[in-house]
Design a protein around this nucleic acid. Structure first.
Length: 463
RNA sequence: GUCCCUAUCGUCUAGAGGCCUAGGACAACACCCUUUCACGGUGUGAACCGGGGUUCGAAUCCCCGUGGGGACGCCA
């Protein structure tokens, strides 16, 4: 049996971190078993679905390089198929028309809640042998309800949570088609998973409660049952539930914030899944190791600090040309138009080990591209008359110094000694003069990367 | 309210009855490296939710509490 998994987001917003992890796990499982990963857009909620959201999801998947083998399929394009199946069910008696109005339903629910009961449909229009149904009211378009079994239990072996069983008495006859004829979520999922031959349903555990309904439907249809794996949710950094107005952000925002996709992927792969003590792994390794047995059953709190650590790691590892391109692009976003020069490439190498993210890297590299402004405070503190005099002496010494880190280091040392200064007394003002900041990588390498022309010009401008 | 899921350091987790004096990682702290700041290295502190069972033996199995989460839509 070929493994077939799917990711089935509804396009009502961006692809957020929880969705991304679900997609990653589904993708990896299919890859691991030489199967197929299918992307399906669940857009039957016409009022809330937007083409922008579809695009946002596609963009997020592309950024993470989670390639679908089939799809994207759109449920709105499968209406005919859904209608046909509903027709069959009506015919077979596994579904029926219900004329209870929305308003009546709301009253029913309110009354049940009043009595501290579980709100559910009362089965008024459910046909039973010997039962006399009321005459259909005129002018009311009926909904179609699934005739759920009344007794017994529906159970499955969840691949992450173990056996889960729910009594059919807890379930009611849910609506599979609205009054306007459009099918609803639980029904579409079932038909799609069946038609698309899905073998493993890997999804968020907010769907655990839908599973028994879907299994009953599948059985009514005579369809094979897939295996289910329900992933627990991801909580925000503060332990609170992620929601649109609290902490939930698009995966694309991680790009904007300077994260490398491989860092996000590695972080997500390790969040709620483990492979012994392994923390850092490539997608190749992840695919080779990934299994359902080591998925955590409980909710996991997102930890930005750890993501940052991974991001820093991947920045250290990244290809230099790629980092240079990212730096240029991000400087552009900061309003600084520049080119990927050899000097900038050198500077990238000098700074990559100290950057937590790509935006920090770009920001640190700004002084290599545009003249920094030196804050008055720093100027007063570091560019004292003594320091300025030493810097001019250094400028003279640098005039015809070979432009190489070792030589430059010697020149700085000699100048400091000649001026009766300790190294930091010259090096710190020099940093301030060149970068507008008192900290930097080693000063000799800094000079080398910045280039003779720029260094001398900046020193000259001080006087 | 009813049903379902869940519970190991602050956080992510290892742990499938003896290998656990509970391991790793992030974060924290200390020290080392260093002309600064980082990086890096070394080290320290830090956890089995509570109560009952089962067993020679329980972080691991069972039950009951408690905490956390989810569901109960003509949303997905």
């Amino acid at each position: 049996m070929t493994v077939r998994t799917r990711f089935a987001p509804s396009p009502t917003g961006f692809l957020h971190i929880g969705g991304a992890r679900t997609a990653l796990f589904s993708w990896a499982y299919a890859r691991r078993h030489g199967g197929k990963f299918i992307l399906r857009i669940e857009d039957t909620d016409v009022a809330r679905s937007t083409p922008q959201a579809v695009q946002a999801i596609l963009d997020g998947m592309a950024w993470l390089k989670l390639q679908a083998d089939e799809g994207p399929f759109y449920q709105m394009q499968r209406m005919e198929r859904y209608r046909a199946v509903i027709g069959q069910m009506l015919q077979a008696g596994t579904a029926y028309y219900c004329y209870t109005s929305k308003e009546a339903l709301e009253q029913l629910r309110a009354a049940q809640e009043e009595r501290k009961e579980k709100p559910r449909y009362d089965g008024a229009w459910r046909p039973e042998p010997g039962k006399v149904l009321p005459p259909p009211p005129v002018g009311v378009e009926p909904v179609v309800r699934f005739k759920n079994p009344l007794s017994g239990e529906v159970a499955w072996q969840d691949q992450v949570k173990g056996r889960i069983a729910i009594d059919n008495s807890e379930l009611d006859d849910f609506i599979i088609a609205r009054a306007d004829g459009t099918p609803t979520y639980n029904f579409c999922v079932v038909v799609d998973d069946w038609d698309m031959g899905i073998t493993h349903v890997i999804r968020g555990d907010d769907h655990v409660n839908n599973t028994p309904r879907q299994i009953n439907l599948l059985q009514a249809l005579g369809a094979p049952l897939p295996l289910y794996a329900h992933l627990s949710m991801i909580l925000g950094d503060d332990g609170q539930k992620l929601s649109k107005r609290h902490g939930a952000v698009s995966v694309m925002q991680y790009d904007e914030e300077g994260y490398l996709p491989e860092a996000v992927l590695n972080y997500l792969g390790r969040l709620g899944w483990s492979h012994g003590d392994d923390e850092i792994f490539s997608m190749e390794q992840f695919v080779a190791w990934f299994d359902l047995d080591h998925i955590t059953a409980s909710a996991a709190q997102f930890n930005t600090e750890k993501l940052n650590w991974l991001n820093a790691h991947y920045i250290k590892q990244a290809d230099g040309a790629r980092l240079l391109a990212e730096t240029v692009r991000r400087l552009g976003m900061q309003g600084i138009v520049t080119q990927p020069t050899a000097e900038l490439a050198q500077a990238v190498e000098l700074y990559r080990d100290r950057a937590g993210n790509l935006n920090e890297l770009a920001t640190a590299l700004r002084p290599f591209v545009v003249e920094p402004t030196i804050a008055d405070e720093l100027r007063a503190q570091h560019l004292t008359p003594v320091a300025l005099q030493a810097l001019q002496a250094l400028r003279a010494a640098l005039q015809d110094c070979a432009w190489d880190a070792a030589e430059l280091g010697q020149a700085i040392k000699r100048t400091a000694a000649a001026q009766g200064l300790k190294m930091p007394q010259l090096a710190i003002p020099l940093r301030v003069a060149l970068l507008g900041a008192p900290q930097s990588p080693s000063i000799d390498k800094l000079l080398q990367a910045m280039g003779r022309e720029q260094v001398l010009a900046r020193l000259q401008r001080l006087s």
